[in-house]
Design a protein around this nucleic acid. Structure first.
Length: 465
RNA sequence: GGCGCCAUAGCCAAGUGGCUAAGGCAGGGGCCUGCAAAGCCCUGAUCCCCGGUUCGAAUCCGGGUGGCGCCUCCA
């Protein structure tokens, strides 16, 4: 496996810290709102990584956190009058539902920040003891970047002079210093007890703590193998995580850093502050999760993906072809492994998740399979290989696993299905009597209902347009 | 202002020094079909511009132009 490391800025051979074990931590969402397509893409990107590693035989431990305490959540509490728990539980469930629809595997561990406070206290205490952190008179605790010689080596993105904006707080030693602990700010704040007084954690400390608590090695140069997240998290979030962990434990945080590119709309980053968010749950009203997944993963994970419905439709047509092939071999249950195909697909994906190459391999497989089925419609061995290959595609890429008929008939209720079948029956009778005028009329009627039919050797089948 | 990323056919998108620049969508032609649909076959770009390195560059270097991101919460 070769992956692109954001820190070294090049593709490098992946070698786990220990044996065949791989520990991955991905920054999950802050749960104050529904997931948008950007969350979906990030999730799918790292889901692909996980699937490839697992298929390669690695023993993967995958952790994705929920940030369930932060300013936006507090704002929501104050705006709605609901409790923290109510709000975060609601959005966590919503997120998990969306990701399930996108066929993203659940993480092995899904820690919440509010349940990892002890681990944060430990890090903060160590940083205070070692002189890497200082407490202000108001109770806030800051990380002192000037004490960390390695600060900024990870992302290399620290501004030398004044940045455009920065959180200004009275008493901070350096503008770049960031909060480890924020003292309670009054009635409308959400606060927890701590050895440093009541307050709440800074954002960056949460991830360092959850990593330490759940998966970190303590006897290696790095705590985990891979740390992932959106490209916007590289600086300052990941830089700060690394600084805290390194200064507290004298271990680097992760051996490999991976960052996914953004989903953009009209070329601009999709984000809540820009007001151009596109929620997953809304997209799911119009397109099946699998179609959405296929579209979002069809651009390499590091490149930006400019969302367009036109491209999504084009992408769906590509997936349709896989399912039409699957329909052609419907009913076959025996499998015959096709090692050559699996190796080809895997080879593409193990090159830093080269999805374009992988999908080209899938396209070629579909084309050749159709060609061979045209020539030898009864070739059992061929059909068994096709079944096996589609299963492998599902395992590795997370698409193609649905029932082929249901895929094309999604969103059509039973009554309508019955009606469609009756019309097709009538048309077939008309065809038998060579009453093509009537047959064509029925076909037109179906077309008007949004139903496209195909006469095949196995009878007439239909699809929702 | 600091630090980065990107620019390949109508659209999406691989390729990072060398056979005829992958693949998909759309378009055109054909086979198949009662006609369709589906499927299959054929069909398209010299790679943003200028200069350089090299026997040889879309691929490396320099300079432009254009787009985007991070530096503030953010996947």
């Amino acid at each position: 496996m070769v992956i692109y490391d954001s820190h070294q800025k090049e593709k490098i051979d992946f070698k786990p810290l220990k044996d065949k074990k791989v520990k991955i931590y991905v920054c999950g969402p802050t749960v104050y709102d529904d997931a948008h397509l950007g969350h979906a893409r990030s999730s799918i990107s790292f889901d692909l990584l996980r699937r490839v590693l697992e298929t390669l035989g690695y023993d993967v431990t995958f952790v994705k956190n929920f940030t369930d305490i932060d300013d936006k959540i507090i704002n929501k509490i104050n705006a709605t009058g609901k409790s923290l728990e109510e709000i975060t539980t609601h959005y966590i469930n919503s997120y998990l539902n969306d990701m399930e629809a996108l066929n993203v595997k659940r993480a092995d561990i899904e820690p919440k920040a509010t349940e990892s406070l002890e681990a944060m206290f430990e890090i903060i205490q160590k940083l205070l003891d070692k002189g890497y952190a200082y407490k202000l008179p108001n109770g806030d605790i800051y990380f002192d970047v000037s004490k960390d010689e390695e600060y900024c080596n990870l992302s290399n993105k620290c501004p030398e002079d004044e940045g455009v904006h920065r959180v200004e707080v009275e008493g901070k030693k350096n503008p770049q210093d960031f909060a480890l602990w924020k003292a309670c700010k009054g009635e409308n704040d959400v606060c927890f007890d701590s050895p440093f007084g009541r307050g709440r954690p800074g954002w960056h400390i949460e991830c360092s703590a959850m990593i330490k608590k759940h998966i970190a090695y303590s006897d290696t140069k790095y705590q985990i193998d891979i740390h992932g997240g959106g490209a916007d998290l590289f600086f300052p979030h990941h830089e700060n995580e690394e600084a805290q962990t390194y200064c507290a434990y004298n271990q680097h945080l992760a051996k490999y850093w991976m960052h996914n590119g953004f989903v953009t709309i009209n070329g601009e980053k999709m984000s809540k502050s820009l007001g151009n968010s596109f929620f997953v749950k809304d997209a799911l009203k119009h397109y099946p999760g699998e179609v959405l997944r296929f579209y979002l993963m069809s651009t390499h994970y590091r490149a930006p993906l400019n969302f367009s419905e036109e491209d999504l439709i084009a992408s769906k047509k590509r997936l349709d072809k896989l399912y039409r092939l699957k329909k052609r071999i419907y009913g076959i249950t025996k499998k015959q492994q096709d090692k050559e195909f699996e190796e080809k697909l895997l080879e593409a994906m193990r090159d830093d998740l080269n999805i374009s190459k992988a999908l080209a391999v899938v396209d070629e497989f579909v084309r050749v399979a159709n060609e061979n089925l045209d020539k030898n419609p009864k070739d059992k061995s061929l059909k068994q290989k096709i079944i096996s290959n589609i299963e492998f595609i599902d395992k590795l890429l997370g698409v193609g696993g649905s029932d082929a008929y249901k895929y094309f008939q999604a969103g059509i209720d039973e009554d309508t299905k019955k009606k469609i079948n009756e019309m097709i029956e009538k048309r077939n009778e008309a065809k038998k009597e060579k009453n093509y005028e009537l047959a064509d009329k029925i076909r037109d009627e179906l077309q008007q209902l949004g139903i496209k039919i195909q006469d095949t050797p196995n009878g007439t089948v239909w699809e929702k347009v």
